[in-house]
């Protein structure tokens, strides 16, 4: 017996069961189902491409397993209510929330939970209007664009402004809630932002909180992980770090972490961008260079950073570290 998941629109890309039906009478080969969805590739890719983030990866594997099991149940004809997969991603800046959200959309697409698997990333500005009657159409338009994929609301807590009771954010939240509830199979909403503020946001919007089942916390990267990320980034740019530069970078990371406004991987990327600038200037001044010099970042490029100044001046309260 085989029953395709009861979906409102069983359109093209959403095949509940393929021709090689892994369902034989009343047993289901979960492994075959998992392989069929090719989600293992994405999960392995996730493990390979993203450094650290152990709890996040575990959680994503759990969700993937849940979807496979749910698919198997549907194949056996015991399908329950459609799953609610709305999530919240909490963590400090630069911990990979947007990147993981993109992968999440891909995984959900492979497992047939969303039909198209695209990611629409928005902030308060895209949802909330400027005058009465402007908010609802704006929010609805964004929701329509996100249908069939994942809606990623960055810094979601700005939607709710308790200090202004006539703020239109509340209207956006209400429409959001309505669609999240009624069109669960059409889109998945991910709320992202700082942990403490997201928690407060959910506390003041219990209706919304009860519709978000999965809370994933993104831990800060350790120094070792940040260095690995730096290596990955440098490699991606077609450059390399000299041994000294690597040492300098690890010192840089150690110092930068203790300074305010540290944004994990993003700070590292910015630091590398600035190192590239200095390297470029150094190369121009040098005149003739060979391929090796052209692609190598030296320690001096990194040590010229103001992060090291702060230590030299013994002034750790320096604000913008460049």
């Amino acid at each position: 017996m085989r029953k395709v998941r009861a979906a409102t629109f069983n359109t093209g890309s959403r095949h509940g069961v393929s021709d090689q039906d892994p369902v034989v009478s009343d047993t289901v080969d979960l492994k075959a189902l998992l392989e069929e969805s090719k989600v293992a590739d994405v999960l392995d890719e996730l493990d390979r491409d993203l450094i650290g983030l152990k709890p996040v990866k575990n959680r994503i594997r759990e969700i993937a397993s849940l979807l496979v099991v749910e698919k198997a149940r549907a194949a056996l004809g015991v399908s329950g209510a459609p799953l609610s997969l709305h999530m919240s991603f909490t963590g400090n800046p630069g911990t990979g929330k947007t990147t993981v959200a993109m992968r999440m959309a891909e995984i959900l697409h492979r497992l047939g939970h969303v039909r198209k698997g695209h990611l629409v990333a928005v902030t308060r500005d895209d949802l909330v209007g400027q005058y009465i009657g402007h908010t609802a159409p704006k929010t609805k338009e964004v929701l329509k664009k996100a249908m069939g994929g994942v809606l990623f609301i960055d810094e979601a807590y700005y939607l709710y402004r308790p200090e202004n009771e006539r703020d239109y954010g509340q209207e956006a939240i209400e429409i959001l809630m309505q669609v999240m509830e009624n069109q669960r199979e059409d889109l998945v909403v991910i709320f992202a932002g700082y942990k403490s503020r997201i928690e407060r946001f959910f506390e003041s919007n219990p209706g919304l909180a009860s519709r978000v089942a999965h809370h994933i916390d993104f831990p800060d990267y350790s120094e070792g992980e940040l260095l690995q990320i730096a290596d990955r980034m440098v490699g991606g740019l077609g450059l390399q770090l000299s041994a000294d530069a690597r040492q300098a970078l690890s010192e840089y990371v150690e110092r930068r972490r203790r300074q305010p406004n540290f944004a994990n991987a993003r700070s590292i990327r910015n630091a590398l961008d600035r190192a590239r600038l200095r390297q470029a200037r150094r190369l121009i001044e040098a005149g003739r260079v060979d391929a090796e010099t052209l692609t190598t970042i030296e320690a001096a490029d990194i040590r010229a950073s103001r992060v090291f100044d702060a230590v030299r001046d013994d002034d750790s309260t320096k604000e913008a570290a460049c």
Partner: peptide
């Protein structure tokens, strides 16, 4: 009925409207 729906990826948006 409203604006034309540009940038739609999936029919669900139109079906909603």
């Amino acid at each position: 009925w409203g604006m034309p729906m540009f940038d739609l990826k999936d029919a669900a948006g139109l079906m909603y409207e």
